[in-house]
Simulated scan of single mutants.
Amino acid sequence: MFQTELYHVFKSFTLPLVAAGAILSSTAQAHFQMLYTPDLLRERGGQITLKMPFTHPAASGHVMTAETPQSFYKIRKGKKTDLTDAIKPISWTSAENTGPAYEADVKLRGLGDHVFVMEPAPYYEESEDKYIQQITKTIVNVGSLPTDWNEELGLKTEIVPLSKPYAIYEGGTFVAVVKSEGKPVPFAEIEVEYLNYEPDLDNNSFAKDPKITPPADAFITMTIIADANGTFTFGLPKAGQWGFAALEVGPEKEYKGKNLSQDAVIWVQAHPIK
């Protein structure tokens, strides 16, 4: 009831940028396509590994059985490099199960932003009788030289940063706009989760112990609503990586005769103040 009334308030008024997205509670764990490497801000390039489990990162939850990604590539200074052939199957272990996942070893050459994009195959969620496809971005910067971080990539749907997703202080804010086929999505619903269980890259698993203890289940998956221009702001209270998933914002609504939730996902990193 409260969420419905609040949604109509958002529909009736254009929220200012700084107030975009009142936080709503959710006790369900959110699906999140991960595209993970530990450091999104690096002094030098070199070899990195990106892990791609489809899981529930805030709670070390169930690892879904995902098919081979449809595409995986990198954008740097406007140039696209296909990395699909670098994808390798792995298994990923959470507190609940071990499931199939993927990884890719790639080399970062040159300063600037390396924007990685992974488009997974749609996943059938039996409990909801629908498919989910989360088009995911992770931006890795080398040398603190900004290049492509705020560029729109022409994806079916994407979250376009308005603040550098790799250069945020703990306690700072992440600002972005949700787009579908290049157009802002008014009042988009965005789920937010903290990567609360540190990924163990050597063992392809989450750590056994969480980094924080949420004060209530409502903090496992938080939901915010973008403003009338598709823009949202979220404060990052804890250092680490945070995932943002804008739900059902893509243009494709059906797959294999069933409903399709085509989502836009981005991962950002907050850094501690020492």
Rank of each mutant, 00 (worst) to 15 (best):
Y194Q: 00
L201N: 02
F206D: 03
N196M: 01
A226Y: 06
N204S: 08
Y197Q: 02
T223L: 10
K208E: 14
L201E: 13
A207K: 03
A226W: 02
A207T: 07
I225Y: 04
M222R: 15
P215G: 12
T223Y: 11
D202H: 13
D200H: 05
Y194P: 06
P215T: 09
P199H: 09
I220D: 00
K208I: 06
D217K: 15
A207R: 05
Y197E: 07
A216N: 13
A218D: 14
T213M: 10
T223S: 13
T213V: 13
Y194A: 00
I220V: 15
S205Y: 00
M222Q: 15
D217W: 10
E198G: 00
D200C: 09
D202Q: 15
A216R: 12
Y194K: 03
P210C: 04
N203H: 11
F219N: 07
T213A: 07
P214W: 03
K208P: 03
N203L: 09
I220C: 04
K208D: 15
N204A: 10
D202K: 14
A207S: 15
I224F: 02
A207M: 05
L195K: 00
N204K: 04
D217Y: 05
D209N: 14
N196C: 06
P199L: 01
P215D: 11
I220F: 10
I220A: 06
F219I: 03
Y194L: 07
P214D: 07
K211Y: 01
D202N: 14
A218C: 02
M222L: 15
L201A: 11
I212V: 15
K211I: 14
P210M: 08
D202E: 15
I224S: 05
I212S: 01
L195D: 01
A226G: 13
D202Y: 08
N204P: 03
D217P: 08
I212N: 06
L195V: 07
T213I: 15
P214A: 02
Y194H: 03
N204D: 12
A218E: 14
A207Y: 03
D202R: 13
F219Y: 15
A226C: 08
L195S: 01
F206H: 07
D200R: 10
T221H: 05
E198A: 13
Y197H: 11
N204R: 06
D209L: 13
P210I: 09
K211A: 09
P199S: 06
Y194W: 03
